[in-house]
Nucleic acid binder design. Structure first.
Ligand SMILES: [Zn+2]
Ligand SMILES: [Zn+2]
Ligand SMILES: [Zn+2]
Ligand SMILES: [Zn+2]
Lengths: 144, 144
DNA sequence: CTTGACCTATGATCTAGATCTAAGGTTTAT
DNA sequence: ATAAACCTTAGATCTAGATCATAGGTCAAG
């Protein structure tokens, strides 16, 4: 049996995070001591580790709640149910990747077009690109 | 001169967003009507478009505030100052890309290892991977 | 002259995932 | 027996970027 501080330390998280997970129906201690302290079992610890691993691959707590509800009742769920959660998340991650990749491309183009020197920014291509209504940054050098 | 609703509509944002930008020192209307209505000039509109373009390449509002403070005082800033902002942001975006790519890899591995069929999830490799303390998902099939 | 669209200011609410505070009770060690 | 460390609860705070609610003032059309 772990008290909150022991489990938190063992899993390298904050005590408050465990209370937060409890309030948000992710993990409740199996019992309480006479004085009301939370008491976690080995099984509880395994569930916590499940949560932390799921976080580690990108799942939100809401998604982890779904995973856990399958986990505790495996027999009544199909592989398909689990895989859908993973594939939905994967699509989500790939959408975010696409957006960030667009950012990366734009920023690289901006960076490459700017000399980065100590000259006045009056003709800086970066600022010009942000001022203008074109998306394209011309790569010609800007200082006379 | 645009009133708040006119400028907001022209730039496809919410009136409240303009008030929010004003409160957060990004864009203030050049003047007010006698009755206190915000009045935006063409110049104000251009600044707003600058802000929206900067958002479009991934800058946060705090970063845009910095860009704007250079923009309004170009002569006293160097290309280097602008480029540093872009390169810092680029590094930031690339860190996030790296994390998402890790998520993508893990999720793909999980997805590929699961049959996704209608069989009970009792031996689902995805759940097994999240239960176990190994990072590796074995690709062997899981149902007997 | 009244309806409806638009505007004002201030402050609350939302998401997500915690973290922190306050006021107090418990346990352990010295 | 008393200090330190730990625990309890409820509720506030934080980031970021808005959006919404409230209560009221302004303006154009019919
Ligand atoms: Zn330059
Ligand atoms: Zn430049
Ligand atoms: Zn299967
Ligand atoms: Zn499976």
């Amino acid at each position: 049996m772990y008290r909150i501080g022991e489990l938190a330390k063992a899993c390298d998280i904050n005590n408050d995070t465990l209370r937060f997970y409890e309030k948000n129906a992710l993990l409740s201690p199996s019992s309480r001591s006479e004085s009301g302290y939370r008491l976690y079992t080995e099984k509880d610890k395994e569930i916590l580790q499940f949560i932390l691993r799921a976080k580690g691959v990108g799942f939100t707590l809401a998604e982890i709640r779904e995973l856990l509800s399958i986990e505790v009742n495996k027999a009544d769920n199909a592989c398909a149910d689990v895989k859908i959660l993973v594939d939905t998340k994967l699509a989500d991650v790939e959408r975010k990747l696409a957006e960030l990749t667009r950012f990366q491309t734009s920023l690289k183009r901006l960076s490459d077009a700017c000399c980065g020197g100590e000259e006045s920014a009056e003709h800086c291509t970066i600022l010009e690109a942000l001022e203008s209504n074109t998306n394209n940054v011309r790569h010609e050098h800007h200082h006379d």
